[in-house]
Write a protein that binds this DNA or RNA. Structure first.
Lengths: 137, 137
DNA sequence: CTTAATGCAAAGGCTTTGCAGAGAC
DNA sequence: GTCTCTGCAAAGCCTTTGCATTAAG
C-alpha cells in the first residue's frame, strides 16, 4: 500500500502541488501492482467515496507523466496505460485480457538500433511482447 | 505503385473476395511507403474519386490484418497504423509529427525475453523507438 | 486579490455497430 | 432466392477543452 504521505512527498519532489485529489490518485496508482488506464483509475478513485472529476484525473496523469514520475505505455489501441515504474523496462501485453505486465530491463538486450534522424531526441525504447492467453479465442 | 491486379491477387490468396472497394483500399495501402491509419486511408480513398464508406475501410483493414497480409502497429494512442510489411521488423515513431517508419529486423537483436505464461501463444514482439524531431516543442 | 486547481458538461477523434439496400451466383 | 458486401448514420469509448466555481496564500 502507498500512503498519502508518500504520495504527497512524491508529488512535491516533482514540483506538483499535492492537492487532496492528486494525492488520492497517486496513492491508488502507486499502490497498484497492475498498470491502469486513466479511465480505470477514474472509476477506482470515484468508487472509493472520494469524488474526483474526469478532467482532474486526466490532468494529474498528464502532469505526472510530463514530470517523469510515471510513464505512459501505449500497448492497447483502446487506451493509454500509466506505469508507476519509471525504471527502463519492457512489457508483456495479454491481448486476451488486456492486462499489462512488466519485464525487467536487466534481462532484455536490444542491440543494433539504427541512429536517430538528425536533431532528434530519444523519447524511449519500448519492447512489447504481445500474446494471447489460454482461454478465449 | 501497386496495381489493381496485384491487389486482387493478394486478396484472393488470403481468401478475401476482391471487391472493387477492397482492391482500391489495398492498392493505396500497399503503394504507400508510409504507414497509414484507417482514418487516413479512408480520406485518401475518398479523395481519389472513388467512394468507399468508413465501415468498409475498417472492415477491410480488420479482415486483412486477421488474414495476416497486413499488420497493425500500435504506437500512437490516437490511432492504429496498418503496415503492409508483414516481415518481422520494428518501428521508429516520431512523436512530433506522428510519422511511423520501419526498422529492419535484421539489424536489431532482442535477447533475454522471459518465457510466456503457460498456455499462451506469442502474438508478436514489437520494438518501438520513440523520438521527438527537431521542430516543435 | 490573484493565481492555480477543480468540476462539469460538451465536444472531438477514432472505431464499431445495426440494419437496410445492392450485388453476385 | 440466398448469401455476402457495402453504405449510412448512430452510437461508443477514451480523451480533451472551455469555462465557471472553488480553494489557497
Amino acid at each position: 500500500m502507498y500512503s498519502e504521505l508518500q504520495a504527497a512527498e512524491l508529488l512535491r519532489r516533482a514540483e506538483i502541488v499535492p492537492t487532496p485529489q492528486r494525492v488520492e490518485i497517486t496513492c491508488l496508482l502507486m499502490g497498484q501492482r497492475a498498470h491502469m488506464s486513466a479511465e480505470e483509475l477514474y472509476r477506482l478513485v470515484n468508487s472509493g467515496g472520494r469524488r474526483v472529476s474526469k478532467a482532474t484525473v486526466y490532468n494529474t496523469l498528464g502532469l505526472m507523466s510530463k514530470k517523469g514520475i510515471i510513464r505512459e505505455v501505449i500497448a492497447d489501441p483502446a487506451r493509454v496505460f500509466y506505469d508507476p515504474n519509471t525504471q527502463p523496462h519492457h512489457h508483456f501485453f495479454d491481448v486476451t485480457t488486456g492486462k499489462l505486465q512488466d519485464i525487467d530491463a536487466d534481462m532484455v538486450q536490444v542491440s543494433g538500433l539504427p541512429p536517430l534522424p538528425e536533431g532528434a531526441t530519444l523519447d524511449g525504447v519500448e519492447v512489447i511482447v504481445r500474446y494471447k492467453s489460454a482461454k478465449a479465442e
